[in-house]
Design a protein around this nucleic acid. Sequence first.
RNA 1: GGGCGCUUAGCUCAGCGGUAGAGCGCUGCCCUUACAAGGCAGAGGUCGGGGGUUCGAAACCCUCAGCGCCCACCA
Length: 847
Amino acid sequence: MNLPEKPSIDGLEAKWDEWWQATGTYRFDRSKTREQVFAIDTPPPTVSGSLHVGHVMSYTHTDLVARYRRMAGREVFYPIGWDDNGLATERRVQNYFGVRCDPSVPYDPTFDVSALERPDDSMQIPVSRRNFIDLCDRLTGEDEKAFETLFRRLGLSVDWTIHYTTVGTTSRRASQRAFLRLMDAGLAYRTEAPTMWDVDFRTAVAQAEIEDREQAGMYHRIAFDREDGGTVEIETSRPELIPACVALVTHPGDERYRSLVGSTVLTPLFRVPVPVFAHPLADPEKGTGAAMICTFGDITDITWWRELGLPTRVVMERDGRIGARTFGQPGWESRDPDRANAAMAELAGLHPKQARTRIVELLREDGALLGEPQPVRHAVKFYEKGERPLEVIATRQWFVRTLQFRDRLLERGRELRWHPGYMGARYASWVEGLNSDWCISRQRFFGVPFPVWYPLDADGRPRYDEPITPQESALPIDPAGDVPPGFTPEQRGVPGGFMGDPDVMDTWGTSSLSPQIAGGWEDDPDLFARVFPMDLRPQAHDIIRTWLFYTVLRAELQHGSLPWSDAAISGFVLDPDRKKMSKSKGNVITPIEMFERHSADAVRYWAGSARLGVDAAFDEQQMKVGRKLAIKILNASRFALSLEAAEGAIVDPLDRSMLLRLARVVTEATEAFDGYDHARALEVVERFFWGFTDDYLELVKGRAYGAGDPGAAGSAVASLRQALSVLLRLFAPFLPFVTEEVWSWWREGSVHRTAWPNEAELAQITSGADPAVYEMGASVLGEVRKCKALAKLSVRAEVERVVVRDSPERLSALAGVVGDVRQAGNIAEIRTVADGEFAVETILAQR
RNA sequence: GGGCGCUUAGCUCAGCGGUAGAGCGCUGCCCUUACAAGGCAGAGGUCGGGGGUUCGAAACCCUCAGCGCCCACCA
């Protein structure tokens, strides 16, 4: 026994973190079988951002599960990953080193960034993709250290020897290998198709990265001329797309337009003949009931264009401007090409808003604009990181087949155990609403490139339908630097030679393989067999449709299984005014501040009291409570262990009764953890603990001092230690630092590698015990204490006599604890009356 | 437009068929042989509104309202 004079929670974090790392407390033992392993697909945080209390909460939730499962006998596979693949990192590296990634620059193995000469600071030197990635590694390495320090201070029990980065070699190899296999299986394909396009980033984006934003707009009522001399009116918010109009559409059941279907009308200004179709998607209630179909104004246009087999007449360029077009040519027929080209000349080079203003003027002069444009507010699609509305632009992109697996993906969603269960509905509604395959290519420079080259024909044009792929053993490759089999570097870009695929993968293309990457898929088959499919995916609810969905998709396509059996979804942390925390609002609280003010255990206590799925208000008060609890554990433990009478057999009725109650707490906490309800587990343990210190400790301390019967004292001391052992283990997942500290005073090894308590270990002691003994002792002592407090006396004040009234059964339970009650309450005599309801009369001694 | 969740004491939340709960905060009291980072007591709620089922509803059903989130083809 090695008890400190005055225990303190200060300094525990550094002390125990160091010890855990040095002794490998959380090291994964890869000799264990899949059944023995509990594998966690830890979310890799974006290292270029900063950690906030939201991370602290959700990562703590995961750690609670990890620590519980580890103690409950599973070998926990708990790796960490860093997400350094993406725009945020790209930008930071550009600014920090003054370089930019240019895939056309060849790799320079002797590259030295410090030797770069820049004429002025704003200039960015082009470097090869490989050199750029090296710089990313270097810069993010520092961020990763800072994150690791913070996570270790928080006490995450991850195995720090198992980590990956999303831009690292392993991740790139896995991403490319998985992609090649999808290609081979026909599940990844390259095609030219209309795609949501961000004009600022100049890249395609996937459905999952799109969000609606309410915008002010204008409805314009516009007349198209019918060939019989009349007009037909449509409404549009995007009149600038009239030159891209390829048809009108009405609902098949709409009587107003029945005679029009099948006829041809002329677009205003451009005088382009376009057909009128009927299609069930046309809504008679919207606008005039007749809609203009353009290539492409929105997603519905794509559907109509595809289903009605319409021609393509694109005016939107990739830079988001209207491009110059010449009417009067094939595909651009016009009844009045001169007039059309004059109008086109007015619009060419303009952004949509400018073009809209201009064309409205032209339409007004022409008389095609009916009435004045009416203001509306409507939802407009934006790239989640973008600032201007997305355009739909036809480009050549890689897609992963998704739509055809919708039913199977829905089935997987039902198979997955969601915590809380209702989060499954979000997944289902997302999958049900999918409208396109996953566009996985991005026109960016930094990221994992597609491991593909294309042969160039005699004219130097790429033959996209004959892609050249590398051997898997060569991965990862960079098609911008590496040369395909059978070619020489000199053949790059020349007729008859080859070119590399210029695109990189969607960042989710890598992240969606996190279980495979962390688990050593193909690189370490032995490990992979022990950890995959994993047990748990912890994450927040905002990325169900991205990270969670894509991970399910990849596992389905690659392995025909779920990637994990359970998904634990954390809520967000809101500021005390229940607003979402964000940097721009300046209401972000840094975790380090909280650790310093309240201790890591206290912060974990706050996080642990928030349930999964529920948005939690940031509550510093709750951290203060956690701190008090941590200190109480230190003090109570020190006291209990300081009672050094010889341990004996646990025979006293009170001791056995208390342990029986504790056994129930064990069961409840275990059930709560098994059901992913850590907050419930914490609550029942904490409730018992406060009663344990207020009542049990007070009741037995006189006996445990050992002045009287050695057997009775021995029972008390043994019970105290037994209970303390169980309580420390129950608290260990929540408060890893104080529990380890106390454990170290009197036990060998780490509490975190000790078995989770179970009823069986207490069964022999508590067999036949009466739960009412502890309850009666606590109740009577409580009443006496209350009486003294009301009389403004010390708790040590002498009591002449106590009369307890209750049923005979309860009074017989009291008999088992009466000696302890007398001693604890400083009571001369206790009388009982076997009659009626529980009541305690306390007669204080005269002074 | 569809879906999910929430609405219980001033605050944060538990309870989810049997006499309204916890912690914090507030008010008052008690110091010190583990801990004042402790102990005791008190005030404070028609459990969002309205119907229904039931001997009995905060809890189950219906309905309405407010808040939050997710999804949806921008005419």
